[in-house]
Design a protein around this nucleic acid. Sequence first.
DNA 1: TCTGGGGTCCTAGGACCC
DNA 2: TCTGGGGTCCTAGGACCC
Length: 413
Amino acid sequence: MLHVDMDAFYASVMIRDRPELHDVPVVVGGGHRGVVLSANYPARRFGIRSGMSGVEAHRLCPDAVTLPPDFTLLTPVSKAIMETFRTVTPVVEVTSLDEAFLDVRGAGRLFGSPEAIAERLRSRIRAEHGITCSVGIAATVSVAKLGSRLAKPDGVRVIPPDRFVAEVHPLDVGVLYGVGEATRQRLHRLGLVTVGDVAAIEPDQLRRMLGGHLGAHLHTLVWGTDRSELRPGGAGVFGFGEGEPEGSMGSQHTLAVDLTDRARLHRELLRLASRVTARVRGAGRVGRTVALTVRFSDFTTVNRSRTLAEPTDVTQEVYDTAVALLDALLDAMAPRRPSVRLLGVRVEGLRRVRDGDSRQLALGERDPGWPDADRAVDQAADRFGSSAVRRASLLTAADSAPRPPGWPVQAIR
DNA sequence: TCTGGGGTCCTAGGACCC
DNA sequence: TCTGGGGTCCTAGGACCC
C-alpha cells in the first residue's frame, strides 16, 4: 500500500511557472476572513501552517505573497497526477485533490518493489508537473498515511509491520489518522499520551472508555491493523462514481460582514441554493433532505434539516425549505437578533435520477415552471459561464451595465 | 483584523410500527 | 393493566479528514 501526498500542493502548483516566487514566502488562501489553504516552505519557516487564519499568517509574515487558489490550474494537474497513478495500478483511492492511496500488490511483476514504484511515480510527477511529493509505504491505510507524513517533504518512508511497534508506539497518539484534536485531548486526560500507552489498554476497556466504535477503531490504529483494502474511485473528489450514492452536496459561505437582516440572509440562501442545485442537477442526482447551517458571530454553529416527501433538484424548493428552516430558527431565538457569520445549504440523501423522475417532479402540487427555469439557467451557464445567469433578486448595480451583443438576458423572476 | 469550504461517519433520542 | 424488545426513519450535534 502506498500513500502519495503532494508537498504544499496548492502553493507548489500556483507558483510553478512563476520562478520569482520560488524563494519567497507564498500563502494560498487566507485573506479577509479566510484560512490558509497551503503555504510554501519559505512561508512555513515563519511558522505559517495550513488551517491557520489569514490574519494570523499575515502577523507572522507581513511580506508573504497571498494568492487565491485557482482551481482552473489546480484541477487539471490533480487529474493528470491521478492518471499517472493509474498507470501502475487500477486500485487507486483518491481522497482529495492532492493525495491518494495505491494498492500496488499486483504491480510487482511489472514495476518492481513498492519502493521502486514510489520513486518511479515521484520522478514522473517531478518531471511532468514540476512539483514534489512524499510517499508512505505500509500494509494498511493509516500506517501508509502516517508514513507519507513522516517522509515530508520530498521523501519516502517505509513502515513494515515488524517495525510498526518500534517506530510508531513512541509517538503522540495525535499522529494517528483518525485521531484529531478532540480525541487526542480526551486520551491525554485519561493519561494516554503515546500510541504505545493506548496499545497497552485492553480492547474491551478501550471500548468502555471511548464508546464502541471509536474504541474498536482506535485499537486497530494503535496496532497498525486497520483496513488494507481500498475503495477504488475514492470519495468522489471529481464527482460520483458509478455506484449508488447516498451522499450529499452543499455550499457554504462566510459572509463578508455579519448580518442580522432577514432579507439579506434570504438572498444569500438563494445564492447558495442556486449553486448547490446546479451541481446536484449536473451530477444527475436528486436529494430528499435539505440541511441549513448557521454560524453566528460568537462562532456557535447550528444545523437544521428537513426531509421532503419527494427528492428534488429544484432550486426553488431547496431555497424555500432553507428559508423556512432559517426563519424558524431565528423566530425561536427572538427577541434576540443574533448576527450571522456563515450560512450553508446542503442537499442530502442524494440518489441518481431515475426514468420518470422528471415527470413526477413536474406534476402534483409543485409549481411546474421551476424545473424549466432551472434547465434554462443550466444551459445558459454551460454556454456563457455560471455568472451569466442569476435571479434578478441577486443582481447588483454593477450588473445593470450595458452588455455586449449576444449576452444572455439575466432576469428570471 | 481570530477561526474556510468541501465532505464522511458516528451517536443518540424520539416517533412509530410490529 | 402492565411490560418488552427490535427495526427504521428523522433530526441534531460532533468528530474527523483535506
